[in-house]
Design a protein around this nucleic acid. Sequence first.
DNA 1: CCCGCCATGTAACACGTTACATGATTTT
DNA 2: AAAATCATGTAACGTGTTACATGGCGGG
Lengths: 186, 186
Amino acid sequence: MSVGFMSFRQFILGLLRQQPMSGYDIKRLFEILTWLVGGPSLSSIYTNLHALLKNGLVSVEVVRQQNRPWRKVYSITEAGEQTLQESANQPVASQVSLRAFLMRLIVARSFSEERLICHLQQRRVQVAAQLAALKETARAQNEKTDFKRLALDYGFAMGNSELAWLDNTVNRLSKKPLPMEVVRGN
Amino acid sequence: MSVGFMSFRQFILGLLRQQPMSGYDIKRLFEILTWLVGGPSLSSIYTNLHALLKNGLVSVEVVRQQNRPWRKVYSITEAGEQTLQESANQPVASQVSLRAFLMRLIVARSFSEERLICHLQQRRVQVAAQLAALKETARAQNEKTDFKRLALDYGFAMGNSELAWLDNTVNRLSKKPLPMEVVRGN
DNA sequence: CCCGCCATGTAACACGTTACATGATTTT
DNA sequence: AAAATCATGTAACGTGTTACATGGCGGG
């Protein structure tokens, strides 16, 4: 499934902004988050790198290694920087999946601490809203045999955890408690 | 992005097994979980329903409503039941994203409590393994300025929460089937 | 009367996957 | 000598998105 405003292509570009890498490196990077957000196949990564290269958003350099096969290390170009800037400046859609959030999170970090915090706060508002909606849904159909029950329960647990993490992280990063009275928890 | 063994198509079929619904109903169902796993577009839902119908896995009935437009309510057929059974019996892949897990969770529930619990336990093993891998990664690259830091941190938080929820849920389900309190807010 | 929600659908396109293909190097 | 890991790539296919298109019905 596409995530619209933040595709894997964009994300890969964001990763290259932080440090030059090969396709294989990127694959290993994705692996650590696979269980959370899934990840593109290796083929897809290479294809995206080719496309970025063709569009002049990245450049390549073949690196010969000792005791290992050669690698193609990609770096972001000026044009790539600009493109990334633009896409990062776009406002976040109201319905953002966890995957899209995480990808933007990582990219946002490379720009500035302010943007990062802003991003976390936006996510906080959205998760809080979703939790409220979830609560409403649960209340509306409180029949015990409902098949959505477990999914709702799971949603609550994860949502509350994420909310707590967001608060915690924002606080830690901004080093001073922010006044937040957004709807929270039960 | 596809999830391989558990596509939206399969999931929609699973939903219809639990109760007949229209495409629009399904869309609203997905909405409550959008922030977690994303969801297919309305178009995609309709297209999938058409495909399921063409394959004889579901049947339709046009329902005329008062004060509202007519709806097409889909129900699962015998053939659909069988197909779903088979796909549900397939072993879970080792690297399962949260989305795939949630979809299987909901479908598994409609089969039997045993299968549900089994599914939860499988997920537990996988999340635990991922957390261990995450910890290893974090230890390996403990530079404080690393750009993966935040993502790793997020992964820890979510992983630990999910682990706790899984344990809690498995316990609750295998002990006694008493009413579960859904809302467990902060 | 227009807007928004309900409700369905088609077609062009973008994106990602699986299968296939190659080859160096290290480990067992 | 075989298997695993590192490392890259192509092509066919499946699936999902966006844009487009239609229409009933209710409320402001």
